[in-house]
Each structure stands twice: as structure tokens, then as C-alpha cells.
Amino acid sequence: MNKRKEGELDLKIVLLGKAYAGKTCLVQRYVNQMFTDTPYQNTIGAAYASARVKVHGKTVILNIWDTAGSERYQSMSRIYYRGAKAAVLCFDLTDPESFDKARYWSGELERNEPNCLIYLCGTKKDMVDIEPGSRATPVSQVQSLARDLRSELYETSSTTGEKVNEVFMKIASDFVDNIKNMPLEKPSTDSFRISQPSDGQRKGWCSSC
């Protein structure tokens, strides 16, 4: 990562989800633009990666916090998601408990970080493509949670790269849109929600189905 330049915007993104949901793979795929076929290691505490993207003429530095999924580290997660502007809630499309955990995290965020935008992300899409029966949670149920959270819904594959860039680009562009719409003299985080797209625009939005 190069030195930071003037006028660049910082955006803190946190990844949350059950152990083995594929959070680290998603970040690695996005940051390195490749899937290494060696098996991954578990994340201890949190890992950190960053990327620089250009959207709507603005350069945004994505500060991505990849958290550990194991129950044990749950009590530490608050330290990591504090102040995040966006959260990617990852769940393994083939693991029902993984979706329940995403639901848990959404509640936790709504309570503690109400200004954080949520992006629901079903991972391991390639496995569902090969074996449609392996899908653990009906699409309708996932969409319903996405609606409740007014969240975007993506189905990604870190193996093929499907929709991986889209998730992060959407996060960056929502962020820039929000800043543009924000009154300049009052750049407090309280005004963040005001400029969000209305319910109607977002409802049921699903990029992959």
C-alpha cells in the first residue's frame, strides 16, 4: 500500500460471521485478486487489509477488518467493529448455522453501531452451483432478512471471484454517495442515515438472483 495522499477518504469495513464462513478468503480474493488453493488458516482476533479504489471521482481507502469467527472471539468483536461504516455479514450458503449467526451479528450491529450499513454476503456460491441441494437456507428467507436490515444481498464465490469486487465497490460507492449528500458544515456521523436510499429503492435488492 502506498503512502496516503491528500483528499483521500478512509472507510472502515468490518467482516463478521461464523467460523469457517469464508471471511478471510473473501478479503484475500478481493485484495489479491486471486484465490490461493492452499487451505486457509483460522484468523486469530482480527486481521487487517486495505485497498484503494476510485468511485465517482473520489479515492477511497478501504480499511478492511477481518474478524475471527469462533465463539471465543465474539467478546472481542466489539473492539473491532467500533466505528465501522460498513459491515459485511458473511454466511456460508451451505451451512444453516452460519446464516443464524449472520442474523445474530445484524442484531448486535443495529444495537451498537446503528450508523453502520450492512451488506449480507452468502459465500461459497460455487459449491451451490455445483450442488444446488447443498443450499442450506431458502433464498426467500435470506431475502427477508436482507429486507428487514435494508441491506444489500450478495452471493459470492472466492474461488471464481463471482461478485467479490461488486460487494466492495458497492460499499465504496454508497459511502461516497452518503458523503456527497451530507451537509458539509455538519459532517457528524448522526447525519449518516438521512442520505440513505429510501426503503423502496433498496427493498429486496439482490445482485445475484
Binding site: W65, I79, Y80
Partner: peptide
């Protein structure tokens, strides 16, 4: 930069990995 981001793996894994 929180110390918890820097040091957690150092202490949990006793520097292994």
C-alpha cells in the same frame, strides 16, 4: 490504532505463526 489489533495474535499464539 488499538493495541488489541496489534497484539492479540502475538499473545494468544505466543508468537507461533
Amino acid at each position: 490504532v488499538s493495541w488489541c489489533l496489534i497484539g492479540i495474535k502475538w499473545f494468544i499464539c505466543l508468537f507461533a505463526d
